[in-house]
Structures are given as C-alpha cells and as structure tokens.
Write a protein that binds this DNA or RNA. Structure first.
Lengths: 334, 334
DNA sequence: CTTGGCACTCACGAGGAAGGAGTGCCAGTG
DNA sequence: CACTGGCACTCCTTCCTCGTGAGTGCCAAG
C-alpha cells in the first residue's frame, strides 16, 4: 500500500512544511526534491497518502500538510535522529560542566535545550523518590528540637525541623544517628520505608518515643512529599511559532503553568532509555493538543521540549537525547 | 491650566478605555459620565489635554486614548486605591495562611496575585541579605568534613558542605559553634561580615586554621551568593490582553525569563512602604516599554504584577498592597 | 466659557473582480 | 500497469472601490 516512493513523498512534505510553514503542492515538491517523477505522479501518491490519513489539505486548492498521523509515521520510520556535530557536543558539555550545584545544572539545561531547539524547554529536578540517600544528618538544635537533613546522590538536600514531645540528650541523638544511618545509606528513597519498617522493634525501648517521631518525619520527607519541581524556559519561543497555533497560545501557556501537567508530560515515558515523542492529539493534556512533546529520562528525572506539531523532530530529538545523556552523566558522576 | 473638569475628563477617558479597549470619543464620554456639559465642551478639554501630552488619538477621526503621561497623572492624582472588601481580605488571608513552608508561601502568593489582578505576577523569594540569621548549625559529618546550615528568619535554609584541611575533634566543632553562634544570632545578613570581622583574633589559636576555613565559607554563603530567586505566574494572562501589545508579546516573555531583569524590576523601589507604579516608557527594561508594573516590598523581598499599560491601576495597586502586607506579616510572624 | 452647527477626515467593512496555485480526472504512452 | 501531460475546475488570496459613520476642529452665537 505504501511503497517507498510514497514514504519519500511524505518525508518531503513534512520537511518542506516544517521549513516553510506553507502547504506544499505537487509541483514545487517534485522540483525541489529529486524524486525523478512528474507532478502528476506525485499527485497520485498524495491522494493515496490522504486516503490513509497521513496528510490533508486545508481547502480544495491548497497544498498538503501532514496530519498528526503523518508526523507519527515520519517520526517512527522516516526520521533518523541526526547525531550532533562534534563542536555542538563540546559546547553542550562545557556549558553544563560549568554548573556549580544542582539548581545550576537544571537552570543551565533549560537554557541549553530551549536555545538548541528554539522551543519551550522543560526539565524536572531529580526526583527524590528515584534517587538514593547519601546521608541523613540529625542535628540537635535545642533540647526538644531536632533538625533532619537529608542529602541524596543527585545533590538534593531536604531539611525538616522537628519539635519533640520530650527532651532528649545528646547521647540519644547520637543513638538515633546510629540506627538510621546504616539502614538508609545507599537506599533508594522508594525503598526506604521498607528498610526502616523493623526499626521500632529493633531499637532500645528508651528510644522508642523519640524514634517514632523522627521516623514519621523521615518517612513523610521521603515519601509523602516528593515535591517534584520543574524548571521551564524558552516560553518566548512560542511566539516564534505563533502562526502555528492560530489563537491557541493561551491554553498552552496555561498548561505550562501547571506543575502537575508538566510532570505527567515528562513522566509518561515508558522506555527510560530512548527519546519519546508525543504528537498533537496523542497528548493526554487538553490544551496541548496542538503541540508535540519530545522527552527523555536522564536517570532520576526527565526533560524535554515542547513546540508546535510542525517542528523539526529529527533535530529536537537529537538535542533532547544529547542533553539528557550529559545531564545524566553529570549527576551520576557528581 | 488643568482645572478640575479637565482632570475629571482624563479620569473618564482612562476608565472608559481600560474598560472597553476602544478609543473614547467626546459624545459617548459626555453621556456616560455625568459631566453635565456638552460634547463640544468635552472636545475643548480634550484638545487641551492633548496639547499637554496626556492623551492622543491614533488617527484623525478616532477617539482619544491616554498616553503614558496620562496614566501617570491618573495614578498620581486621580486614582484612589480602593480598599478591598472584607471577604476579599479574608480570602487572601486564609489562602496564604494555608502555606506550609516558604516555597509554598511564594507559590501561593504568585497564584493569588495573578488571579486577583488577571495579570502576570512576580514574587521575589525573601532576600537573604535583608533577613536575619536565626540559627547557624555546624554539623560534624566526618573527621575532616563539616556541614554548615544557615536558617534565616524568613524561613530560608542554606547549607554548604566543607572539606577541612585537617581533622578536627567534636570539641573543636563545639567550640566553633560557641564562637559563631552568639555573634550571628539575630544579625542581619548584610551586617554579618562586620560582626565576624574580629573573630580570628578573638578565638583561641588552636582553632585558627579551622576557623578561617569555616569563616570564609560562611561569609561566601552570606554575601557572595545572594542567589535571589523569583517566582512568576499568570503568563497566560498576557494573551488575554493580546490586543494591547500588537506584536510585542515576544520581548515581554523574553524579559520575564531574565531573572536579572525581574529583580531590577522589583528592586527599583524607593520607598519600601508604598505601592510603586512604573508606566510604559518609564520602565528601564527594553522590551517592557509597553507594559506597566505595580510593585511593593513586603519586607525582605518584593512582589508585583505586570501588564499592559491599559490596566486597572486602582485595583491592581490595592491587590498588590494587600498581598504584600499579608505576606510580610506572615513571614515576620513565622 | 459654553454650546450647537457644520464641513471634513479617515478607519472600517462590504462587495466584487482578477489572479493563481493547486487539485482531480482522463486519455495517451512506454 | 505505472507514469505523464493536458485540462477544466475550485476557491483562497489580494486588491480595489465605495459607502458609512464616528469623531474631530473650528466658528459663531448665547
């Protein structure tokens, strides 16, 4: 049904349309790409592609534009992720390596992605639940006051101040450290509750009351409040493509303000090691139905870019992949 | 030169224009507002106002619209900041009081402001430099490793891990606490360097090497890296007024992504206790020349809203003031 | 100083008409 | 059977014209 040339025609349509933002007609297409056939033949192929739902035309006498389904086919079968050039790679690496802390890594990644792709960039902070405990420090602030500081391997730090029902001694606090420390060190945050489940039984009775308080705070810090944060940038790029979303800029901006929506966007990745593309209607998020999203995991979090369905998938996919890899390496090595 | 009626005419023009987004003519104006004079008279006044540069008309036979200068006069002399209604106040208060931590306070403030004003809201995190030290904790992580945790009265927490050149004992750390604690407690962060300047001399010689290391880190945390953060929200509201900035939405979005620009925006306030308004060309930031900014300090930081010059100054000023006050109280009380 | 009257200006929208890009279909050809 | 050139047709886009009306500026009278 879809022979090679038809696929080639589809590719040409997508590429031309991405380039010019104008419906592409049979004549110009036959000329510009060296298809070696006449416009009439191209027209026949186009008719076939349209029957299958890969392209449409806005009105009778206009050229063709790809449908979401067409882009999907293009992404799945036609676009080879073009590798970045050596200078590009170096630029990415050196730019990211200049980061001084976690915040900086994320901020730089957002900047980098939005500049590379000319789209809106979204980067999730490393998810607490997927990272490992590097250190839990218990600080004795006052006789009945503790501060818990949790440091993860992704460089993230969470702290809580805790009022105790009773006064505790320095010795008690030291004991606490000794019971929590070994169990938590190196544990993934999702596994922590299990690792701590036998604590109340294993601890000396005198410590029980304090321990329960501390335990509940630790658990809530670890689990209850994942507090997923997201950085976003390059929204100004949306106006660059203003022609693509006729008047639907508002819902896009609104969606971008919803942390939850963004997390879902980034989190819906199945295979954690490959670039993932959601095209137009495939998006579960109302209001992003006219956009495409290219995402990838970098390990303890995800990142990606968002733009009009009429985007340079090939380029964006490679940019996202490259940045995700570098960020992943950076955090793993840090 | 500008008698009372002319001012009244200006007010009417501003209010009508803000309302309808259409140039307002002499006839409709004379009718809708009970000026008690004929359109012809209004025309004369308008001509005068135009001579003075308070209003213009887009083309010969269109109504008048206020200039930046006109809005300025309106804000300075004509608009009384209307107090919020009791239910509004309660709503603000209860919404903000639900916040669980500093991040939450800021996030909620942004939401609140953008919803109240239907504009873009900007809230600065409490500036470290303007807040006071509540507690400096020194944690002995490993023989030659310390963690410094700085807690400020605005609920902010900063921590640094520090590798020492030599091993230190628990006793040393305890001594360190004793020398730093009293000097820092309650000191404003900007004053801290002065408060600590005599430390090297006052401390026992044995502590000197460690102390210098710690001191330099503390100072850098306090001063060198103010790390001003900003939260922003309601950008989608910009599209609501898309008609106001014909095609200048891009530079606005771009400016909003520049932390530095935003800080300048919020920081340029002279009198810390009143609402401050920057109108159109008054803005020092290129790209925000078609917008107005309403800001106010809440104590250790600032907040405000940004929108088209054609905005409800009166309402926005009162909203900003109200939120700033509540946030200020909240942080002071916390 | 205010008012009604009046001529004038000019953006805006409706209504065509010409132009042209692009299509679908068909009959002919290798 | 696939490809090609030809041709009639569609209908969007652009440009022009023209009427309409809101609004102005000015002037003379109250």
């Amino acid at each position: 049904m879809l022979d090679d040339r038809k696929l080639e025609v589809l590719r040409a349509i997508v590429e031309d349309f991405v380039d010019t933002n104008e419906p592409v007609g049979s004549k110009t297409l036959a000329e510009r790409h060296g298809l070696g056939v006449s416009p009439a033949t191209v027209r026949n192929d186009m008719a076939a592609l349209e029957d299958e739902g890969f392209i449409t035309h806005p009105h009778t006498s206009a050229g063709r534009i790809p449908t979401d389904k067409g882009y999907r086919l293009f992404v799945d079968r036609l676009s080879q992720v073009k590798p970045l050039s050596q200078p590009e790679k170096r630029a990415i690496q050196s730019f990211l390596e200049g980061a001084v802390d976690l915040d900086d890594v994320v901020t730089r990644s957002v900047r980098l992605l939005s500049q590379l792709t000319q789209q809106v960039a979204v980067v999730q902070y490393p998810s607490l639940s997927r990272s490992e405990v590097r250190h839990l420090e218990i600080v004795h602030l006052a006789p009945n006051r503790l501060m818990l500081v949790l440091i993860t391997d992704s460089g993230r730090v969470e702290q809580r101040v805790l009022e105790l029902p009773a006064v505790v001694s320095d010795q008690d606090v030291s004991d606490l450290r000794n019971v929590f420390g070994p169990r938590l060190h190196g544990a993934r945050l999702v596994d922590a509750p299990r690792a701590l489940s036998d604590l109340p039984d294993a601890a000396p009775p005198s410590l029980r009351p304090v321990l329960t308080s501390v335990l509940s705070v630790v658990l809530s810090t670890l689990v209850e409040k994942p507090e997923e944060r997201i950085a976003i940038g390059g929204t100004a790029n949306l106006t660059r493509h203003a022609l693509d979303f006729p008047m639907t800029l508002r819902p896009v901006l609104e969606a971008l303000e919803e942390q939850v929506v963004l997390l879902r966007l980034i989190g819906e990745v199945n295979d954690p090691t490959t670039v993932h593309v959601k095209i137009g209607e495939e998006n579960s998020v109302e209001g992003l139905r006219s956009t495409s999203v290219v995402t990838m995991n970098y390990g303890p979090g995800g990142l990606g870019v968002l733009g009009p369905t009429r985007m340079d998938y090939s380029g964006n996919m490679s940019s996202v992949r490259a940045v995700a890899r570098y960020v992943g390496d950076l955090l793993a090595g840090a």
